[in-house]
Design a protein around this nucleic acid. Structure first.
Lengths: 167, 167
DNA sequence: TATTGTTATACTCTATAACTATA
DNA sequence: TATAGTTATAGAGTATAACAATA
């Protein structure tokens, strides 16, 4: 598969199927999250990650931004929104005086807890129940590898992490 | 897998991997499309579909909205943007006087043609080159089935097509 | 009556750069 | 010098409902 050659139809099909199936699944989940918790998908990701993925419901701003693939200023906006609703608090990082730690509140845990059951039902209905075990394993392995690679190796077309030293 | 039970970690992993890998791939492609053609991803989808997926570069507004999973008013906005830049024209549908047909212009085809080579390179670098043939076939089949099912059967959490007859 | 598409409006989100403070 | 985070600001995108015209 040399660079510069057209992708053949089968290759285009993988690409389109990946993007569109992900988008349709996310679209359905967005409706459910909005309906049950009045949260955007990104806000749900932030809260659910704090609730399920951390030891004490605490995470630094930068780590959250990396996790949800979000700009710093965008995350500040979302964190302010969540704080305004009493779902998280922002406190100074005791280990780094430049840092801010986001902490999920009891109200935040309660809200996520009220969203998750239906959320998992939707995931099951749309995705899990239609996969046989072998396909599920393949999907997990291949998509997981893809995700890990893309996380680590932004391609030449992605915005560089550091601004180029122009002078 | 009964409704109401928690998803096990492996099931959550499929769900997260699908959404995040799709999002990362789309993110990379958005950078490329913006850089090479100053288009948003949705605008690229509209134009590329007209260019590659139609017989004469013509498609009805409603069909485009369905294809890109977009609201009517959102599509009107995007079509106006594309028309403003001379990349498409909107003409009355000869077969249905209510309808509007979007037609890609020469400038639109030229722009897409200038984006596609690099676009395909990115898809290759990030996705195709890392799949062995068996995995690629599995992915295409499973994700294609998923997409087809989700297209046809919006779950109970998705917005209904018709507003409920309330009286 | 239902469907096609547009408009108006308000709102959410996102991107950028400038800025402060600390490492 | 580099990094963490915030702010300001402007612009893009999106959702909703109301509307006109046609099926």
């Amino acid at each position: 598969m040399a660079k510069g050659e057209d992708l053949d139809p089968a290759e285009m099909a993988v690409y389109f199927a990946l993007l569109e199936s992900g988008r349709l699944l996310q679209y359905a989940l967005e409706q459910q999250i909005r309906r049950d918790g009045d949260l955007s998908f990104v806000q749900f990701q932030i809260l659910a990650g704090l609730h399920l993925g951390t030891e004490h419901g605490r995470e630094r701003m930068t780590d959250i931004a990396d996790r949800v693939v979000y700009s710093r200023s965008g995350l500040t906006y979302q964190a302010r929104e969540l704080e305004r609703r009493g779902l998280v608090e922002r406190v100074p990082d005791p280990d780094d005086d430049r840092g801010t730690v986001v902490v999920i509140t009891g109200a935040g845990r309660k809200l996520i807890g009220s969203i998750l059951p239906d959320h998992q039902d939707v995931v099951r209905e749309m995705l899990i129940d239609h996969l046989d075990p072998a396909d599920a394993a393949t999907l997990t392995r291949v998509l997981g590898e893809l995700r890990d690679r893309m996380r680590e190796q932004p391609p030449r077309s992605a915005r560089p992490r550091r601004k180029p030293a122009s002078s």
